[in-house]
C-alpha cells in the first residue's frame, strides 16, 4: 500500500510543476497581450520563407 504514498507524492510534484509554469507565464507577461501574438505568428512564418528564398 505504501506505493500509494509514493504515487501521491509524485502526482503532487507534477501538479506543482504545472502551477509553477502557470505562475511563471503570468509573471513573464504572457497574458498582457493575448491578441497581437496571434497576428505576429503569421508573418514570422512568411519571413522565414522569404529568407529561404533569398538563400536559394
Amino acid at each position: 500500500m505504501s506505493v500509494i504514498a509514493v504515487l501521491i507524492a509524485i502526482s503532487l510534484l507534477i501538479a506543482l510543476g504545472f502551477l509553477i509554469a502557470f505562475l511563471w507565464a503570468v509573471k513573464s507577461g504572457q497574458y498582457n497581450d493575448t491578441y497581437t501574438p496571434s497576428i505576429r505568428m503569421l508573418f514570422d512564418d512568411d519571413n522565414k520563407k522569404e529568407q529561404k528564398k533569398d538563400k536559394q
Binding site: 501538479a15 502551477l19 505562475l23 503570468v26 509573471k27 498582457n32
Partner: peptide
C-alpha cells in the same frame, strides 16, 4: 497593468482545489 495578483491567486486556488 493586468491584475497579475488575481491570476496568481486563481492559479494557486485551482491547484489546491484540484488536489
Amino acid at each position: 497593468k493586468l491584475n497579475k495578483k488575481l491570476y496568481y491567486k486563481i492559479g494557486i486556488a485551482a491547484f489546491c482545489f484540484g488536489n
